[in-house]
Amino acid sequence: MNLRVPTLPELQRAMQRSLLDCADGDASTWVIADGLDAATRLGIYRNTCASVLSSALRLAFPAVQHLVGPVFFDGAARLFVAQAPPRSAWLDEYGAEFPDFLDRLPQAASVPYLADVARLEWHVNLVLHAPDAAPLDIARLTALGEAGPAELRFQSHPAVRLLRCEFPVDVIWRAVLERDDRTMEAVNLADGPVWLLVHRTQSGIDVVRLGECEWRFTAALFLGKSLPAALEEASCDDAHAVLALHLARGCLVDASVGSGTSARAFRRTSP
């Protein structure tokens, strides 16, 4: 019997329905048996797809896996994969919705901080894979001349993220990854919320706890607001010290005066 050859989009849609919805109808008609029936062949592809996506989640959320154990994690990962298939072929981008999924998962309710740990790990993942950029050269700020702080704006490094969590997840995350049971036992969940800065350094990923005021001031700066506007949102007594620390950490890559397309920008140039 001669079968119509499907177009590539038809075949892709059929495989998508088979892999994600277990609906093999269309795809099975285009499978050549050759020793294995269509259902078995498609099942192999489906299991491989779920396994690869679960592995991607294990790589992105190692502390979460340690907290709940590999069996629980694998079960949760497969439930998530079924509900939230990837939208991109780049697996480093897969898992953004996993923390919220864990927050809604009834079986994870006994670990109330689990979703927040996952949120921190996702931010670590984003920072780890973010593009690089040369940090702002402090000496270049003198080129701003007479503009004054009222017009001064900054651009944050691509490998910097801010995160607020209800629980002290920075302590939990480090304790779990370092297998520090003593610190883990001493964690007081009432020590939250915490305001965190996640950034990439030459030696790895650093998670810094900020005060609430420092965090809000930093968030305003990272959004490109002027210094006075950032101070208005969070009136920090040590705002200039916070800014100096961000410059020293390399969290800022660009400075400008003015706004819009007319702004004059200054960044460190390559030698």
Rank of each mutant, 00 (worst) to 15 (best):
residue 93 E to P: 00
residue 97 E to L: 15
residue 103 D to F: 01
residue 78 R to K: 11
residue 56 A to L: 04
residue 69 G to T: 15
residue 73 F to L: 12
residue 81 V to S: 07
residue 88 S to Q: 09
residue 70 P to F: 09
residue 88 S to C: 13
residue 72 F to D: 14
residue 78 R to T: 04
residue 52 V to F: 13
residue 77 A to S: 13
residue 66 H to G: 05
residue 58 R to L: 11
residue 82 A to F: 03
residue 89 A to V: 11
residue 63 A to F: 03
residue 77 A to E: 05
residue 93 E to I: 01
residue 73 F to H: 12
residue 74 D to S: 14
residue 96 A to G: 06
residue 90 W to D: 15
residue 94 Y to T: 01
residue 77 A to I: 02
residue 69 G to C: 11
residue 51 S to K: 07
residue 85 P to H: 04
residue 87 R to A: 15
residue 83 Q to F: 03
residue 56 A to W: 01
residue 88 S to F: 11
residue 59 L to F: 02
residue 64 V to W: 00
residue 96 A to Q: 12
residue 91 L to Q: 06
residue 88 S to D: 11
residue 96 A to F: 11
residue 93 E to C: 04
residue 52 V to H: 10
residue 103 D to G: 10
residue 83 Q to K: 12
residue 72 F to V: 11
residue 84 A to T: 09
residue 60 A to W: 01
residue 63 A to H: 00
residue 94 Y to Q: 02
residue 56 A to E: 01
residue 63 A to D: 06
residue 58 R to W: 03
residue 89 A to K: 04
residue 64 V to H: 03
residue 57 L to Y: 02
residue 92 D to V: 15
residue 60 A to V: 04
residue 89 A to P: 07
residue 57 L to R: 00
residue 76 A to F: 02
residue 56 A to D: 02
residue 95 G to A: 08
residue 98 F to M: 11
residue 69 G to Q: 12
residue 61 F to T: 02
residue 87 R to I: 10
residue 68 V to C: 13
residue 59 L to V: 09
residue 83 Q to R: 12
residue 59 L to E: 05
residue 95 G to N: 03
residue 102 L to H: 12
residue 79 L to V: 08
residue 69 G to E: 11
residue 76 A to L: 08
residue 105 L to I: 06
residue 70 P to M: 08
residue 79 L to D: 15
residue 77 A to R: 01
residue 80 F to S: 08
residue 84 A to H: 13
residue 95 G to R: 02
residue 60 A to P: 01
residue 89 A to D: 07
residue 98 F to V: 09
residue 84 A to I: 03
residue 99 P to E: 07
residue 76 A to W: 02
residue 69 G to V: 12
residue 65 Q to S: 12
residue 99 P to Y: 03
residue 91 L to R: 05
residue 91 L to W: 06
residue 81 V to R: 02
residue 67 L to I: 09
residue 102 L to I: 08
residue 92 D to W: 06
residue 58 R to Q: 12
residue 105 L to M: 14
residue 76 A to K: 07
residue 71 V to L: 14
residue 82 A to Q: 14
residue 59 L to K: 10
residue 96 A to N: 04
residue 54 S to R: 03
residue 95 G to T: 04
residue 53 L to F: 05
residue 85 P to Q: 06
residue 104 R to V: 01
residue 59 L to I: 06
residue 55 S to T: 09
residue 60 A to M: 04
residue 76 A to E: 06
residue 76 A to N: 06
residue 75 G to M: 07
residue 67 L to Y: 00
residue 88 S to A: 11
residue 103 D to N: 15
residue 77 A to F: 00
residue 82 A to V: 11
residue 92 D to G: 14
residue 102 L to Q: 12
residue 71 V to I: 13
residue 55 S to K: 10
residue 78 R to W: 00
residue 85 P to D: 11
residue 55 S to E: 15
residue 97 E to I: 08
residue 80 F to T: 05
residue 78 R to D: 07
residue 94 Y to F: 13
residue 101 F to Y: 09
residue 65 Q to W: 01
residue 91 L to E: 04
residue 78 R to I: 01
residue 83 Q to W: 00
residue 88 S to K: 02
residue 83 Q to T: 10
residue 57 L to K: 00
residue 92 D to M: 12
residue 82 A to W: 02
residue 101 F to L: 08
residue 64 V to N: 07
residue 64 V to A: 05
residue 52 V to C: 14
residue 84 A to D: 08
residue 58 R to T: 06
residue 57 L to M: 06
residue 93 E to N: 08
residue 66 H to A: 14
residue 70 P to I: 10
residue 82 A to R: 15
residue 61 F to L: 07
residue 71 V to R: 10
residue 74 D to E: 15
residue 96 A to H: 13
residue 83 Q to G: 10
